[in-house]
Write a protein that binds this DNA or RNA. Structure first.
Lengths: 370, 370
DNA sequence: GGCGCGGTCTGGATCGTTCAAATGATAACC
DNA sequence: GGTTATCATTTGAACGATCCAGACCGCGCC
């Protein structure tokens, strides 16, 4: 706009290295200030005189400058990356939470100036020439902590998001022990001493919603199809069923089935329950099991709906598109992501965290099966 | 196990800066060599004398050293990160490819010494103090290229993986124009001049599999339920139907319906086709539409199976767990991921790429609906 | 006039790694 | 024996950002 054609480099004074992305020094020269001033313009603009700031910003825009991440990371000892371990995709299950959660998470992290780095366990051969170092320990059972250590020591990420905290998560304790910053999606179930931040969804309350919904529709013999004992999450969800049933003065006796989180178990459990106890409704610990119940009903030529109801858990895509549509407990994953990123921000800025854990309440997506 | 208690650092020789992760220099001192030698031990071990190498490796292990990523990135001008833009999760559709693909991708990249960085479009406020710079251009329509530029200029990623190449993908052309290294999942449909590497799945062949399968079971009136004209992918898949039908000497006349990729369109299309043309089988461009067809059948109290068949596309979890199980065309996503990473590797190593595009053949997951 | 002061801005050092070139040691050759 | 080649290792200088200490400026006050 306003001309300042003083230095238009009619010829390169020193042979510039190809197109070479602009650096702080380039911008500084262009704006006629020092490197540090450009740096301040980006990181602490309130330190600059307005007119200087404008001049620098113009130069930045003109050159299309973005600060080099590696250099910044090196100097500040922060990568602005959050590590997330992706678990193997499970087939033949409805459990596709990841999609929905991931997008929310990436959005939330972006707003906080972070990015998500995905990694996975199993042998991580050092990048570099393939020297098959005969490392016997790599042959052992898959270590749930695998991958975390390396990323942390190399300062590749600032913090982790730990999602698979079921089963008394060993890695939470391990990470905490090492002072690794991380937030867990899932309560530190078995560990009252845990001092790390976490976000979780109140599965118990979700199941209670389901029970209330069914009672409203006149059901009294409401069965539970859930996971084996030993799963904290499973027991938590189940407690929503038992407690709420009792609240309503209903019996839970002989109405509970526990087994694997598979379609087939749901199917067999439904058959068994129908044979012996004639329940009129099923509440399940997962959509996968619920789909199994649906299959059993189908095999008996029974139609889920008002008279015979099924409720799942997770509001998976399968629940949404199957026929009939499956009523299901929906986790507020978008909100979970926001909370997690908030906690991560506090953690990394060393801000004090008031409440270590936050529990969010799910909702019920009502469809044709109830 | 074997004891090596020689240096138990009884007191810090020089005031060490807190725990302070070990650096090259630390390891060098420990092993009694120079920094560069340690670096070589990691990156070009063949340069070292075996005994020196072993000594250095021991020191590395003893100190638990991992090279600092930021420093390495800065020096080598490479981040060993692949950028992947995540699209908004779509609800009420069966399209949950991402889960399965993502895991394979992360595994493949790990084996190649890379990681996946997720990002998303929309306003990316500069990380740093919240100065609400009134940037009017941020208010405009969502730019599909948004995010790429910034990550590239800041050298945050080495290359991109572009997945949403349907609809004549503008960003592929844009990235190519700027010389950005990237690989596309999806052919450069409308652009014969495209010179970037890509991997794709032969949807046409997949649909042909479906048609063959149905013809084998005695079907002759096989209908198509697909997407609107204008979608390259949609037309490609549809061509598998028309061509294969004709190969079998079957008519396609009036047996085709096109519309949105929604459950409801599939449902309405099925009703309309059943009213007028009495098809005995449906081949669909997606599982979402197929689930719609299933719903229509259910509404007419028709049962999919041998006599009346439905085939979907994507082999989503919904197809797997719904009742009855939906026969569906399955994309070899694991293989896609491997090919993509191979291409990315070649690209980044500036190795010549023989064939720019690779097309993989899907399979058919047969279930109860056929 | 000298001093202190807060607000701006600058120059040098630094983060931890790899690159390029130099060094020392050892063997090979005529 | 001296020159050359080869190997193993070291040394110094980058990469591009931020941190730190200090310089400069104009101003008000004693």
């Amino acid at each position: 706009m306003t001309r300042r054609p003083e230095l238009h480099r009619p010829e390169p004074p020193r042979s510039e290295p190809r197109p070479g992305a602009p650096t702080l020094a380039t911008v500084a020269a262009e704006a006629g200030v020092s490197r540090q001033t450009v740096s301040n313009a980006l990181n602490s603009p309130e330190l600059l005189r307005p007119e200087t700031l404008e001049r620098v910003q113009e130069a930045i825009e003109r050159l299309g400058y973005s600060p080099n991440r590696a250099a910044r990371n090196l100097r500040t000892r922060a990568s602005r990356l959050i590590g997330l371990k992706v678990a193997p995709a499970v087939e033949d299950s409805a459990n596709a939470l990841m999609d929905r959660f991931l997008h929310s998470l990436v959005e939330s992290t972006r707003d906080a100036g972070y990015h998500v780095l995905l990694f996975t366990g199993s042998p991580t051969p050092q990048p570099g020439p393939e020297v098959p170092v005969d490392a016997p320990e790599h042959v052992e059972a898959p270590d749930p902590l695998d991958g975390y250590d390396e990323l942390l020591r190399s300062a590749a990420v600032d913090a982790f998001l730990v999602t698979d905290t079921y089963l008394g998560n060993p890695q939470a304790a391990w990470l905490e022990e090492r002072g690794v910053p991380f937030v867990a999606f899932g309560r530190p179930w078995g560990d009252p001493r845990a001092r790390h931040p976490w976000v979780d969804v109140d599965g118990r309350a979700g199941v209670m919603l389901a029970v209330d919904h069914l009672v409203e529709r006149g059901h009294e013999r409401i069965a539970w199809v859930g996971w084996q004992k030993g799963s904290y999450i499973g027991e938590d969800r189940r407690s929503g069923w038992t407690d709420r049933m009792h609240d309503h003065g209903l019996s839970t006796s002989r109405l509970s089935a526990r087994g694997d989180d598979t379609l087939d178990f749901g199917r067999r459990a439904a058959h068994a329950l129908l044979d012996s106890e004639q329940p009129t409704a099923f509440v399940c610990a997962s959509d996968t099991q619920a789909m199994g119940v649906m299959r059993a009903l189908d095999e008996r030529h029974l139609r889920p709906g008002r008279g015979l109801s099924v409720v799942g858990f997770d509001d998976s895509l399968a629940a949404q598109v199957s026929t009939p549509g499956l009523t299901s407990v929906r986790q507020p994953l978008e909100q979970v992501a926001v909370e997690i990123v908030t906690l991560l921000g506090d953690l990394l800025a060393h801000r004090p965290i008031q409440e270590l854990g936050r529990t969010l309440t799910p909702t019920l997506s009502v469809r044709s099966t109830t």
